[in-house]
Design a protein around this nucleic acid. Structure first.
Length: 565
RNA sequence: UGGGGGAUCGUCUAGCGGUAGGACGCCAGCCUUUGGAGCUGGCUACCUAGGUUCGAUUCCUAGUCCCCCAGCCA
């Protein structure tokens, strides 16, 4: 799954690290980190980064991966997210082994680093307004201009910075800026803001601080403080790297971590940005952060996706620098592959159609043997009750069957899975709508279990439930969130206009085999011939609710689609 | 039109001077008490143009296209 010849690193990040190891860099240590900001829930894009960072640590003896909450902006952060982030990482199967850190724990040391910078003449307090700072910054093609406050003395800067900390100024009155180069072609180097005043309580430090460090200052120094050797981040930080290196060097930090950038994960037909995810939740366009349609880890978990499938997917997509949109079908492949191996099978009827076996004894109930998992003999068998009246899937009967349809139709014989061969001998229709309400069959008593003595072939095997024994259930079918790719949506169009109105379909009249009646929340099954399903927390004692994780591959649907064209 | 990155099958991704591999997908077939799973076989790619070289996806030059950067967000 990694490299074909299984020698050497599987991606360019690991190649860099291997080369560093070979060169004896960092004294042979490998320390990575996963640094989420606790202002939202983790999604599958984070999973890629988690697998990379924790994976690399695991691959090296003595390697470690720190979990660091990058909580330098109190206005958006919340302890609820801190908790959820930890749960999600553990659920994915990774462990920070006690190396849990908070950027907010470094506020005092960060302040000292800032003082060091000021004393070296490498930082100054600017009193320009936010608007003026923007105006002075110049543009992509024009250099910026020095702030009139840029030449303040070290003493004045020191005093002002101390007074900022002491809370003597309102928000926005001053900022601390690095003194680098207002004419730099790299805008990040045009005296970036290091500290801003925010009279806001922080969820961990309370009212201790009213000045908070910016990402560009806090992040490299946090890495340095923790002795991170390789600081792996996404592409948009590539042109922050010179600033990262500048901060670490000028602040005289104890270590020099190396920043490496890779392309973030994009998945087709869905949204991954925090902004859009938040918009969906806030506008109630989805049920919450754990809505099974979302690519959040919480959503995927509720939908029934396993951590193993996510990890296999992340390993398979690789790590590179080119922008890429991974087809959701590839993700679904790994979900099916994992679920196929481990899911017990069951029979469930999503859209019921009554089937009556005319020649079956009125009150007889047979307990038939059904295999729990053909992929796993150790899963054993179970009994499924069978009687005269059953329900089958509406899709499995056609009064007037099209070409290549080989399920039940008048005069046709099919196999009822694990039961008998039955032949359709008639049907009942609603006189008003013309809708088929009942299908009548006769069974061959010599075919119990599903095979005949004469070995005659039937083209189809269909699933069923006993009308007298089946349990009612609700089933929720999910499909892609968007009807167009984000990159294809015109700038003047609201992206939410492209939400798929059929991304959730609730089926309330479903019937499942009795063994599913009390299936526990989170339990996963393959509903034969349909897909993989997972018991939702909305289930009640009387009625389970199932989420479809992913459908089975459907050859007939493909044929139908081709026939329509 | 400043700076930083990136361009290989439809989609991801290998390859590091010897003539393109894997996975998904798609097509055909086998098998099958899930039209599932599995198994065969097939399909399609090196952004362009020059150059260096016996030989270039790999090196050089010039283009083209795509992404990111002008938060007191991260």
């Amino acid at each position: 799954m990694t490299t074909p010849n299984s020698t050497g690193p599987s991606d360019f990040v690991r190649a860099i690290i291997a080369a560093d190891q070979a060169a004896g860099k960092h004294g042979g240590r490998i320390v990575t980190r996963f640094p989420p900001e606790p202002n939202g829930y983790l999604h599958i894009g984070h999973a890629k980064s988690i697998c990379l960072n924790f994976g690399i640590a695991l691959e090296h003896p003595g390697g470690r991966c720190h979990l660091r909450l990058d909580d330098t902006n109190p206005t958006t952060e919340d302890p609820e997210y801190v908790q959820a982030i930890q749960e999600d990482i553990r659920w994915l199967g990774f462990d920070w082994n006690g190396y849990l850190f908070y950027a907010s724990d470094y506020f005092e040391r960060l302040y000292e680093f800032a003082v060091t910078l000021i004393k070296k003449g490498k930082a100054y307090v600017d009193s320009l307004s936010a608007d003026d700072i923007r105006a002075y910054r110049g543009t992509l093609t024009q250099p910026g201009r020095d702030s009139p406050y840029r030449t303040r003395s070290v003493e004045e800067n020191l005093t002002l910075f101390a007074r900022m900390r002491a809370g003597e100024f309102p928000d926005g009155a001053h900022v601390l800026r690095a003194k680098i180069d207002m004419a730099s072609p790299n805008i990040n180097l045009r005296d970036p803001v290091l500290y801003r005043i925010r009279h806001v309580a922080h969820y961990r430090t309370g009212d201790t601080w009213c000045i908070y460090p910016s990402y560009d200052f806090a992040h490299p120094l946090s890495d340095a403080i923790e002795g991170i050797t390789h600081s792996i981040c996404t592409l948009e930080f590539e042109d922050h790297r010179p600033l990262y290196d500048w901060v670490v060097a000028e602040a005289e930090a104890p270590h020099r971590p190396q920043q490496i950038e890779f392309a973030r994960l994009n998945l087709s037909s869905t949204v991954m940005s925090k902004r859009r995810l938040l918009e969906l939740v806030d506008k109630r366009l989805v049920a919450g952060w754990d809505d099974p349609r979302l690519p959040t880890l919480k959503g995927l978990r509720r939908r029934g996706v396993t951590p193993e499938a996510i990890r296999a997917f992340c390993e398979h997509i690789g790590v590179a620098k080119r922008d890429a949109v991974v087809d959701t079908q590839l993700f679904e492949h790994f979900v099916r592959e994992d679920l196929n191996r481990r899911s017990p099978r069951a029979m469930a009827i999503l859209r019921p159609l009554k089937l009556i076996i005319d020649n079956y004894p009125e009150h007889l109930v047979e307990e038939l043997d059904a295999v729990n998992n053909p992929e796993d003999p150790s899963a054993g068998t179970r009994k499924v009750p069978f009687c005269k009246e059953l329900y089958i899937e509406q899709d499995d009967f056609r009064e007037d069957p099209p070409k290549q349809f080989f399920r039940l139709a008048p005069g046709r014989e099919v196999r009822l899975r694990y039961a008998y061969l039955v032949t359709c001998v008639g049907l009942t229709k609603d006189p008003r709508t013309g809708e088929v309400t009942e299908v009548h069959c006769v069974y061959d008593p010599d075919t119990k279990g599903g095979s005949s003595r004469d070995q005659r072939k039937v083209k189809a095997t269909i699933h069923w439930v006993s009308a007298a024994h089946a349990a009612p259930a609700e089933v929720r079918l999910y499909s892609h969130l968007l009807t167009a790719e984000l990159t294809d949506i015109p700038d003047d169009k609201e992206w939410t206009a492209y939400l798929n109105p059929h991304s959730l379909e609730r089926l309330t009249g479903c019937l499942v085999e009795p063994s599913l009646r009390h299936a526990p929340v989170g339990a996963r099954f393959q509903f034969e011939r349909q897909g993989y399903f997972c018991v939702d927390p909305d289930s009640s004692a009387e009625r389970p609710v199932f989420n479809r994780t992913v459908s089975l591959k459907d050859t007939w649907a493909k044929i139908q689609k081709a026939q329509q064209q």
